Amino acid sequence: MSHGDESGYGDDAVRTDDPYSTIGGTRQTRTRLPDGESDGYGASRRPAHKPRSLVTVVGVVVLLLAAIAFANMGGGDQNDNGDGAGGAGSKPDSSSTAATGTKPVTGKNGTIPSGFAHDEQGAQSAAANYVVALGSTDMFDKDRRRAIVTAVYSPEVAAAREGDLDKVYAGQDFLAGIGLKPDGTAPAGLTFVSRSNPAGTKVVKFDGNTASIAVWYSALFGLAGEGSKNPVSESWFTNTFTLTWVDGDWKVTDFTQKDGPTPVGRDQAASPAEEMVDAVEQFGGFTYAR
């Protein structure tokens, strides 16, 4: 847990037709003159309101603002189509970004957080952390990769998944294609970058001891440094994890991946190779818990 779409905060959200109203943001000052004289805007001064009328107006304004604030909290029914991006026109519930009050996990399984809560929040936190682990440079080192697989996957599928991943990451054509040496390390003078950055999570399905959690994230991947033929680039994906509660923690039994949703890139110049290397070395990754 990113990453603007909600309505109700525009300039005209609570604007009135009264040009002197402070509700609409004009905040113009009227000079109070004796009865019958002009107020400077070509109109006669309005009669003074009684205190009871003033209290009524203030009460209505307060209720109106409260209603608008409540509506923009996204408290209404949500349409969830389970595709990892949300249904057309749907808005996230306020709980999707709000702090839960549950303390972040403190346990570690190797370098990966563990001991997630046995609820929807815990499942989302586990899925986000597993995206980070499975997208890290450690996956290109045989021993570290196996430690990640053991920590992330359910015991019943870990052994099979370990063998499948060994075949992929040890493939010479695969490693050469991304510019790495046969042992999975970067050539001299270059820094290998593989980092996943979750922008948000969504509960697709939750049933006590099983959960389906979608994680939307950006991925940085490539070789940083002078002369790199595979410079660091950014991609966007959505992984949907099937999780099961095993031995007091959430574990992955399966997952699918699809491209996007991908935002429009800004007109920003790519950073020099040296600046990119410095950023990778100086800015550490995050662990996630809501």
Rank of each mutant, 00 (worst) to 15 (best):
V14M: 14
T16A: 05
T16D: 11
D17A: 05
D17K: 12
Y20F: 14
S21A: 14
T22F: 02
T22G: 05
I23K: 01
I23M: 06
I23G: 09
T26A: 11
T26Y: 01
R27D: 14
R27N: 14
Q28C: 02
Q28N: 14
Q28W: 03
Q28T: 15
Q28K: 14
T29N: 08
R30S: 06
R30A: 03
R30K: 11
T31S: 07
R32Y: 04
L33H: 05
L33K: 00
P34V: 06
P34L: 10
G36T: 02
E37I: 01
E37G: 00
D39R: 08
D39S: 01
G40F: 15
Y41Q: 09
Y41E: 06
Y41W: 14
Y41M: 02
Y41N: 05
A43S: 08
R45N: 07
R45F: 10
R45T: 09
R45H: 08
R46D: 00
R46P: 00
A48R: 15
H49T: 13
H49K: 12
H49A: 15
K50P: 12
K50V: 14
K50T: 13
P51M: 02
P51E: 03
P51F: 01
R52F: 06
R52K: 08
L54M: 05
T56V: 13
T56W: 08
V57I: 12
V57S: 06
V58H: 10
G59H: 06
G59Y: 03
G59E: 01
V60R: 10
V60L: 12
V60H: 03
V61R: 15
V62L: 14
V62F: 06
L63Q: 12
L64C: 09
L65A: 04
L65M: 10
L65C: 07
A66E: 08
A66P: 00
A66K: 01
A66M: 12
I68T: 06
I68E: 15
I68H: 03
F70A: 15
F70C: 07
F70N: 03
A71T: 02
N72D: 13
N72M: 13
M73K: 13
M73S: 07
G74C: 09
G75Q: 07
G75E: 11
G75Y: 09
G75H: 05
G76W: 07
G76F: 09
N79Y: 11
D80S: 10
N81G: 02
G82Q: 11
G82C: 10
